[in-house]
């Protein structure tokens, strides 16, 4: 049985904001199916009463004073922008 259908994979690509050609989608769907089939092995493990890991070390919250410091300048923040305008990032119209 297939774990993931072409329609599902197409929906996931949409969620991931990835435009895939139909060839690409076909190939990736069958590879995803293989990989998800393999990772399904985790279901064999008995995790009754086991807490999910959130951090590998036993760490505590670390607090510090909230002090004002220099941060990245606006100029630096915009240095790698593909397009900018008036000190901001310029993007195509929002659909």
């Amino acid at each position: 049985m297939k774990i993931i259908s072409l329609e599902q994979a197409s929906h996931v690509a949409k969620l991931a904001e990835l435009e895939l050609s139909s060839d690409e989608l076909d190939k990736i769907t069958s590879q995803l199916d293989d990989i998800l089939g393999h990772v399904a092995k985790i279901n064999e493990a008995d995790t009754e009463g086991v807490r999910p890991t959130s951090h590998t070390l036993d760490t505590n919250n670390v607090l510090r004073e909230d002090t004002v410091k220099d941060s990245l300048s606006q100029e630096d923040a915009l240095k790698n922008a593909p397009q900018q305008s008036g000190g901001g990032f310029l993007v195509p119209k929002i659909d």
Partner: peptide
């Protein structure tokens, strides 16, 4: 089924 389950099995590995 996937992410949370995997994090539980991760605890077993730890």
């Amino acid at each position: 089924a996937y992410y949370e389950k995997a994090q539980r099995v991760r605890t077993l590995i730890i």
